[in-house]
Design a protein around this nucleic acid. Structure first.
Length: 260
DNA sequence: CTGGGGAGGGGGCCC
DNA sequence: GGGGCCCCCTCCCCA
């Protein structure tokens, strides 16, 4: 059941999309259509696990971990180790070095066992790799892409390293997914699906402790924090902990930090 | 004022 | 390359 506050108020008018400029094919998902879609009726086992939400470490705004979360802090599951450093790994180890204008052949190093280790260093970020293929992969995924960051959004100032990333971003301007019930538009189908739950009342994510149900996994995750005695966001001044970073920010902005 | 729920946005990863 | 999904985060509102 939609409520008045559900209508997003665009404080920053610059972010308000111009619906008249919709240029992508409009996607309509109706509740009837939606019924045919597979739904995550049961929360993930990791969510159901009491250990999944038990706070182990509290964070302050100054000590928040950069992603990926440490495995012992990941409250739900399988946080992707997307940023895992590949520099320590050998990728094939079989290729011989080739010349490359960005590549720097470092002096042969010696590991503790006395074995010489060849190093290949990225000319842009100075990361070093034991193989050329490792360096090449790094460059293709990161530094060269950064250097080629040339896909600019025509609606805003943002730039992207790939056309795919730019296309996805442009959807946030064109909002091709439109709710047939209320006409609200979204950038991605799954956002629309989540919105449709507000019409259908469907709440597939249940709290294993109080059986309260939620339509959104993120909201369940936030709710799970309320079952914890020690919340994971801690004020660095008074050590009070909060279930959400926004609450910690509100606490700090309300004067705690300045009062100490 | 604080805590919590509802809703939505955006980037990244995987298939 | 695109879609689906996940995660983190923010905003708004209410009790």
């Amino acid at each position: 059941m939609p409520r008045s506050f559900l209508v997003k108020k665009h404080i920053n008018s610059a972010k308000k999309p111009n619906y008249s400029e919709l240029e992508s094919p409009t996607v309509f998902i109706t509740p009837h259509f939606y019924k045919g879609l597979p739904l995550s009726v049961i929360p993930q086992p990791e969510i159901l696990s009491p250990a999944a939400y038990s706070p182990i470490t509290v964070w302050t705004t100054s000590s928040l971990p950069l992603s990926p979360l440490p495995s012992d802090l990941s409250p739900i599951s399988g946080y992707p180790s997307s940023l895992s450093d590949t520099s320590s790994k050998d990728h094939s180890g079989s290729e011989s070095p080739r010349s490359d204008e960005d590549e720097q052949m470092l002096p042969k190093l010696t590991d503790p066992s006395g074995v010489e280790v060849e190093k290949f260093q990225c000319g842009m970020c100075s990361k070093s790799y034991s193989t050329y293929s490792g360096l090449l992969k790094h460059k293709q995924l990161h530094c060269d892409a950064q250097a080629r960051k040339s896909f600019s959004c025509k609606y805003c100032e943002k730039e992207y390293v790939s056309l795919g990333a730019l296309k996805m971003h442009i959807r946030t301007h064109t909002l091709p997914c439109v709710c047939k019930i209320c006409g609200k538009a979204f950038s991605r189908p799954w956002l629309l699906q989540g919105h449709i739950r507000t019409h259908t009342g469907e709440k597939p994510f249940s709290c294993p402790h109080c059986n309260r149900a939620f339509a959104d996994r993120s909201n369940l995750r936030a709710h799970l924090q309320t079952h914890s005695d020690v919340k994971k966001y801690q004020c660095k001044n008074c050590s009070k902990t909060f279930s959400r970073m926004s609450l910690l920010h509100k606490h700090e902005e309300s004067g705690c930090c300045t009062a100490h």
